[in-house]
Design a protein around this nucleic acid. Structure first.
Lengths: 148, 148
DNA sequence: CCAGAAAATGCAAGTCATTTGCATTTTCTT
DNA sequence: AAGAAAATGCAAATGACTTGCATTTTCTGG
């Protein structure tokens, strides 16, 4: 692990939400070319340090988001999925993947071997729903507590 | 519905697999600018004539794929998900969405309103698995029957 | 059926995330 | 520490997709 790789992995590990390459560029505290950010993300994903998925939103367009993978004591990966609010553009953690059985079912049904999957939900978060209720359509509020 | 829109919707409706903007350009039989293809796909999706999801594969990179939505007699949409083979790059229909309940659970748990979702599986299809078994790693075969 | 307005389309250029080639620097191996 | 291998920076390219604007088609009221 080089310095750059350690640094980006640290950023991912300490983030509570998935980050795009651009998010990482903003958060990095050491000099690093943006090409290196992309290459590092590829490296981390190939080596199972992180997961990624593509998401399209009105504010950021289509981008790939990365999140650190937590390995369990038995060596398996704790793979998460995410909800993305179409109003405030925050991510909400949906916790550990709950479609393993569904996938196992498809594998059996179709005689395929599933190697990867991508699931993401979009909609309106509790906070934005509340804002709507209380006030018709005001301006969107900022992030819930700080930056995600 | 203009001529262009009807034509693209026809292409989507008669395809058994999701198509990218480029796939559609290849299949169209009337003159149409590629910008129009994109705008038409936006129109069709906004009006619930089709669904889309982004997918990344080694052969085509990251692209958005579109498939016609079938409306049931009760007016609801018959939303499907897809498996994509990382070797032959064919799609396999996973049938009607089976995660509605899971999503309803998340909505309740997190007090969010889910407006959309994207799920896709990647892996090796039955045919490619078989080719592997029978012959070590030969060249990949062509499409199953014709063009998908 | 026709005029005028509204919407759709074509064309050219632009945007933007991401990738690539190649030279230089850093890291690893012996 | 030397040499090879891998990583990084820089500049330019790629490729999906979007935008602005002029022209054409479609729709609506008369």
């Amino acid at each position: 692990m080089t310095r750059a790789r350690k640094h980006i992995l640290d950023i991912l590990t300490s983030s509570e939400v998935p980050l795009s390459a651009q998010d990482i560029e903003q958060r990095k505290t050491i000099e690093m070319n943006s090409v290196t950010v992309y290459r590092t993300l590829h490296y981390l994903e190939a080596h199972e340090y992180c997961d990624s998925f593509p998401l399209t939103c009105s504010e950021h367009g289509t981008e790939r988001y990365y999140s650190a993978v937590h390995h369990r004591t038995d060596g398996t990966c704790d793979h998460h999925h995410w909800f993305h609010c179409i109003e405030c553009h925050q991510f909400i953690d949906l916790g550990t993947c709950r479609i393993d059985e569904l996938i196992a079912g498809y594998e059996k049904e179709l005689s395929v071997s599933v190697v990867g999957h991508s699931l993401s939900l979009t909609g309106v978060c509790a906070r934005c729903l509340q804002t709507r209720d209380h006030s018709g359509n005001r301006e969107h509020q900022g992030p819930p507590q700080a930056e995600g």
